[in-house]
C-alpha cells in the first residue's frame, strides 16, 4: 500500500523545497542580521561637520536610551524619513545622533541639514566610513537603538516611517527605558 504512493515522494519533496525557496525570496537580502546586537557600541570618534562645534563619539551615547542614524545628503531614502526625525526632535521623544556618511565634499552634509533641518543632537562626519564600519553598516539609512549602558539593542534598516515607528520602534524605546 505504502509503496504504491512512493512515486509521490519526489513531488512532495520538490513542493516542500519550492515553498521553502518561495519564503526565502520574500526576505530582503540586503537586510543583514547585525553582528552587534547586544554588544557595546564600538569605540569610534568622528570629527564635527563644517559649521558645527562638536563631533560625535562613543561616550556621547552613555546614560540614556538613544538612536544613532546613518545618513547622507546623497541618500534618497534618508530624505523620506527626515521629516519624521524632525518630528521626533520637536516632540523631544528620544535623542537621535547622526553619522554623516561619505559625503561627496565637506559642504554637502551641512547644506543638506541647513536646507531641511537638523534632527540630530550631534553629528559626526564620516568621509572614510570609520563610523559606518564600526556599526557594521551596509547602507543608509540605518538606525541603531542604544540602551543606557551603551549597548546596541536593535537595528532598523531603511527609512523610519510613522507606521514602523508606532508598530515596532517606539515599543522598543519604551522597553529599553523601562530597564533599570
Amino acid at each position: 500500500m505504502s509503496r504504491r504512493f512512493l512515486f509521490l515522494l519526489p513531488l512532495v519533496l520538490i513542493a516542500a523545497l519550492g515553498i521553502g525557496f518561495w519564503f526565502g525570496l520574500q526576505r530582503d537580502p540586503q537586510a543583514l542580521p547585525s553582528a552587534l546586537i547586544n554588544k557595546p557600541v564600538p569605540e569610534f570618534s568622528l570629527a564635527a561637520i563644517e559649521g558645527s562645534a562638536r563631533g560625535f563619539r562613543r561616550d556621547d551615547l552613555l546614560g540614556k536610551v538613544s538612536l544613532v542614524n546613518i545618513f547622507g545628503s546623497w541618500c534618497l531614502a534618508c530624505r523620506i524619513e527626515h521629516p519624521f526625525l524632525m518630528e521626533l526632535k520637536a516632540n523631544g521623544v528620544v535623542p537621535v545622533y547622526g553619522i554623516d556618511w561619505r559625503e561627496p565634499d565637506r559642504q554637502a552634509g551641512p547644506e543638506w541639514l541647513d536646507k531641511f533641518g537638523n534632527p540630530y543632537r550631534l553629528v559626526g562626519d564620516d568621509p572614510r566610513s570609520e563610523g559606518a564600519i564600526a556599526f557594521g553598516v551596509t547602507g543608509a539609512p540605518e538606525t541603531f537603538f542604544v540602551d543606557r549602558k551603551g549597548i546596541i539593542r536593535y537595528k532598523h534598516t531603511g527609512p523610519i516611517t510613522r507606521d514602523v515607528w508606532e508598530r515596532k520602534l517606539w515599543p522598543i524605546v519604551q522597553r529599553l527605558r523601562a530597564e533599570s
Binding site: 543583514l32 542580521p33 553582528a35 554588544k39 564600538p42 564600519i133 564600526a134 557594521g136 551596509t138
Partner: peptide, 8 residues
Amino acid sequence: VVSRYGDF
C-alpha cells in the same frame, strides 16, 4: 571585520 559584520 567579522565582529562588525558577522560571519556573513
